[in-house]
């Protein structure tokens, strides 16, 4: 097994030489003009929600916003990120309310180290499962043949501890990274376009997953890649969240 020396990733390392290719490929996956691509996947089994209001545990949204500078550097923007997180949470709540589903905020059990450890392991397992879905399920070059044509991913029965602790039926995980072109970048893009050179603007990538806490099964998963969308103000954030939660089953 070969591992790129510069990156000691978790063993085994699924992503060889990834840094070398990422910049080029990540940007070439997007078009200059507005482009949004979502691919949602649903569990192979029939989805049955419990009667009445569904309680959805919203895990702390992993959202970060950056400004894309003319130099190509991405500057992390804390104020944008704070605002975006609030907008995203509000948008999710608004989207789920008419489906008779309410959000329950996740709270870390900091007072109880044993509980904290169990929560942490469950969240780390979700990270690993989410990554595996992205890499091995979406029909890309790493598609696992046996997983093809069905969607049966799970966190296992340990997930029910979240059901017990929060009285929630489902858990929703949200991950977003978003960058916005600075004025300098926009000017550069226009200038280079006149010369026939295409250069990317900001991009939005993300995924969301809905976990049935009774079984630990991932009942819905969505991947989002977009060159439009703005999380910094409520209305466009609502639009972006609608894309992110495209086809969610509640």
């Amino acid at each position: 097994m070969r591992v790129d020396r510069t990156i000691r990733v978790s063993f085994p390392a699924p992503a060889r030489g990834l840094i070398r290719g990422i910049g080029r490929l990540l940007l070439s996956a997007l078009l200059l003009a507005g482009c949004t691509q979502t691919d949602s996947l649903k569990t192979s089994q029939t989805f049955q929600r419990p009667p009445g209001t569904a309680r959805v545990l919203l895990m702390p949204p992993d959202v970060e916003l950056y400004e894309l500078l003319a130099s190509g550097l991405q500057e992390p923007r804390a104020a944008w990120t704070e605002t975006a997180k609030r907008n995203v949470v509000a948008a999710i709540a608004d989207l789920l309310r008419p489906k008779n589903a309410e959000l329950v905020p996740y709270v870390e059990p900091t007072a109880d180290p044993a509980a904290e450890r169990r929560h942490t392991q469950l969240i780390k397992l979700h990270d690993a499962v989410g990554y595996s879905i992205l890499v091995y399920q979406y029909g890309g070059p790493n598609q696992l043949p046996i997983k093809q044509g069905k969607f049966d991913w799970t966190l296992g029965s340990e997930a029910s501890l979240l059901q017990r602790e929060f009285g929630a039926d489902y858990a929703l995980f949200v991950f977003m990274r978003d960058s916005y072109s600075s004025e300098g970048r926009k000017a550069m893009m226009v200038g280079l376009a006149l010369l026939g050179i295409g250069v990317s603007g900001g991009a939005q990538v993300g995924f969301a997953s809905l976990v049935d806490l009774k079984t630990g099964n991932i009942v819905w998963f969505n991947r989002l890649i977009s060159t439009t969308g703005d999380l910094r103000t409520q209305e466009p954030a609502d639009e972006a969240v609608k894309e992110l939660l495209h086809n969610q089953p509640l």
Partner: peptide
């Protein structure tokens, strides 16, 4: 931020700087 130019690979640049995603 101010001295580097013509780098068009944000993720790489920022990762090299030890910052960012």
């Amino acid at each position: 931020r101010s001295t580097v130019d013509a780098l068009l690979f944000p993720e790489i640049a920022l990762s090299v700087a030890g910052l960012g995603p």
